[in-house]
């Protein structure tokens, strides 16, 4: 076999939870390391190997000028660039600041906002071409393994594009929306998480962003009919993927 493909893990504005999921692959981690070389992975190794890399996993939203430069460099040194997690896909949780004026947001957090050079939080494809999206907050680690295997084989990975509802049905979960009248983002959110939240009796939070052919407007209408106030509806759609046109339509219910 030829040399193992080299993987780099980059971090933008994020909580590092997605890259932690790589280490949480405990049961197969040795097999992963056997198959690929985690060449640049600051969280896990003391030294780094220089690029170029076959696969770059980029975690986090882009929220300042330095990150734009870092991202462009990552694009240059990686054959395949992957948005790792919803922050890198859509702006994720950091993008909730986009709906409040910049100075107001900054002064809420920092004592001296003059030192902050923050920009609108975007997913990485706002700045560079992206080859694949691994959605979720955090990512589903099995889906990451599936992606790595497909990349090694040169095959298209099967990343579920449809709604979370499909997975809820496959696992025969009791529907929190229909059976318990809890407002659930499942019908508009991308599956691939194994319907983790509904399986644990929690409504889907929409962390994986819009599914194929999302009809957020219709779901927002249902939320409204079930007594959710417009502010809550807006927050539901803006929480992880408000920057996507699909979810923005849901937030635009008013």
């Amino acid at each position: 076999m030829t040399a193992k493909p080299k993987i780099a893990v980059y971090k933008m504005s994020s909580c590092a939870g997605c890259q932690l999921e790589i280490l949480n692959l405990e049961h197969v981690l040795l097999d992963v390391i056997n198959a690929v070389d985690l060449s640049y992975f600051v969280m896990a190794r003391r030294d780094s190997e220089p690029g170029p890399y076959q696969i770059g996993l980029v975690e986090g939203a882009v929220t300042c000028g330095e990150e734009i430069e870092k991202l462009k460099q990552a694009r240059k040194e990686c054959e395949t660039l992957v948005a790792l997690g919803s922050c890198a896909c859509y702006g994720g949780l950091p993008s909730i600041k986009n709906w409040t004026p910049q100075r107001v947001v900054e002064s809420r957090v920092y004592e001296n906002p003059a030192a902050i050079h923050s920009t609108t939080a975007y997913g990485i494809d706002y700045y560079v071409a992206v080859d694949a999206y691994l959605k979720g907050c955090p990512i589903n680690k099995e889906e990451l393994v599936e992606f790595i295997k497909s990349a090694l084989l040169g095959a298209k990975p099967y990343l579920r594009p449809h709604s979370v509802c499909v997975e809820c049905k496959l696992y025969e979960n009791v529907c929190v929306a229909v059976s318990e009248d809890i407002p659930c983002m499942g019908p508009v959110t991308t599956a691939g998480c194994g319907a983790l939240c509904p399986a644990n009796h929690k409504a889907c939070d929409g962390c994986r962003g819009p599914a194929d052919d999302t009809n957020a407007k219709s779901l927002a209408q249902t939320f409204k009919e079930h007594g959710l106030n417009p502010g809550d509806i807006k927050r539901k759609f803006h929480k992880f993927a408000g920057m996507t046109p699909e979810f923005d339509k849901g937030a635009d219910i008013l």
Binding site: V28, S163, K169, L219
Partner: peptide, 30 residues
Amino acid sequence: MKKCLACGSCTMVCPTCFCYNVVDKIDLGL
């Protein structure tokens, strides 16, 4: 078209729906 969420639930619970997809699950050693 305006109302439907395209979530797929109606077909997943249908007792006469018979369609399936076929996927290969490869082990990490390939």
